[in-house]
Design a protein around this nucleic acid. Sequence first.
DNA 1: AAGCCTGGCGCC
DNA 2: AAAGGGCGCCAGGCTT
Length: 563
Amino acid sequence: MRVVVVPGEDGGGRAVVSGDAAPGGGGGGEVGEVGEVTEVADLAGWMGELERRVGPRWVVPSLAEVYPALLRAGVRLGRCHDLGLAEAILLAFEERAGRPRNVAAAWARPRGLPEPEDAKPQARGEQPALFEADRRTTPAGADPVAQAVDVLADQERRIAGTARPDLLRLLVAAESAGGLAAAEMTHFGLPWRVDVHLDLLVSSLGPRPAPGARPARLAELAARISAAFSGRPINPDHPPSIVKAFAREGIEVDSARAWVLKGVEHPAVEPLLAYKELARLWAAHGWSWLDSWVEGGRFRPDYVVGGVVSGRWATRGGAALQLPKVLRTAVRADPGWALVVADAAQLEPRVLGALSGDPRFAEVAAGDDLYAGVAADAFDGDRDRAKTAMLSAMYGGTSGPAGALLAVLRKRFPVAVEYVEQAARAGEAGRVVRSRLGRTSPPPSEAWQERVSASGDEEVERRARLAARDWGRFTRNFVVQASAADWALAMLASLRRRLLGETAEIVFFQHDEVIVHCPAEVAPLVAAEVEAAALEASRLVFAGAVVQFPLAASIVDSYADAK
DNA sequence: AAGCCTGGCGCC
DNA sequence: AAAGGGCGCCAGGCTT
């Protein structure tokens, strides 16, 4: 059973029960009978009750808008279809990404895509039209629930009309499960020991400075930097002034990046590198970060499901996906509880192996360490060179030794390398590419089209080639990154479903890594479910692939102790 | 003052 | 032959 729900005001809403689509989508994904619309005063209570009794698949315009309030009311949902998330995937698939046609989709649109001119944000308080007119089959002003039913049917029809409706259906289901998991992760929060974090800040930066002042340790380093430049005051936070200061000493550097400075012989280098590292900690994850993001021993970032075109998540505020490794020690299980930390090892090269079906690659990738296997087969056991070669294949790197290493890789694993090169050629030609499940790369902009097709002097044509290659690198990486995101999302969805009846909270998910917080005695079961979820994701996303996707779980007290 | 850009660096 | 993909966030400094 499916229940379509559109929230209204003051915690109420409207709902309608809708029949299930014909099994297997053989009937073209028609929505079955639609019942009477129910006016609900206490939406959370009503949904909680129905969830317990029936456990339907809920259909909502936007989980991000509905689910947090339900969670606060103590209601968790098992299964869901988020119309906005599904719409974003379908519009991209149909190469119409610029025109989301309902508010939820506009909200959920991956960042980085151009804002459509006709999708200006609604004024506050104004009741937005749920759907734009272009595809509406119900009359203007019709019940929003009826419109949602209509959109659901439309989406199912569009999915059924694709070459692989099974894969796209899986992607849409996984995306919605991700929407549920994301809201739950924010609700539960990542356990965060403020005292541990504060100790770390004080021991590395000194006591918390007054507002507007620099921490003592940074001020000392700044003084040492200025002293090293003949006492002339230098602002270490201003890269151009650092470049100029070195130039005055007769040292030409073309940037003030840490890795550039590492190659410079000068007394200012050591304090500068130390300053950069500490300034980063202070600015990005210092006292004000703690004030803003950690409350009651929990870090609660806002996750943006599908926020990256490849299907990776983004976050809004809190920089949750860039937690520096030194801070992992602040992530601790509650007393009597444990963290189950699981990380898919070498996910992207494994994904490339599975996508391409390269038989020799599958053979050497069988072991725990894929790069070691590739090295033994093609690089005289030199793991670093094997890794560089693989990364070049997936990222399009060509500088330094990368080109030559890639040539070796191509000779030994022609099928795997051809897979990404074909994606690169598609991008260079302005075509879209798709992930394993059908997540589709955005089409290049019109500005790109013009630049690439420009003809004229040598410089213009050189720029055209560069622009084409830039986009080729993007699509080359997209097929791997987005298919890895497919797998990770399917794994998360599977894990979430497996843990629904347990006392266990998924509290963190970062591209290829997941953290579960649970009572210590439940941890072994959770670890087993993590591995089962990885197997299930592999079976669903890469059916028949020889390549394995190990997801080893470790049970720890502190995130810093994982692996 | 607010918005945008750049350089830089954290994570995958 | 070929400038390694994706993000978020910060400070500084520019423009509006």
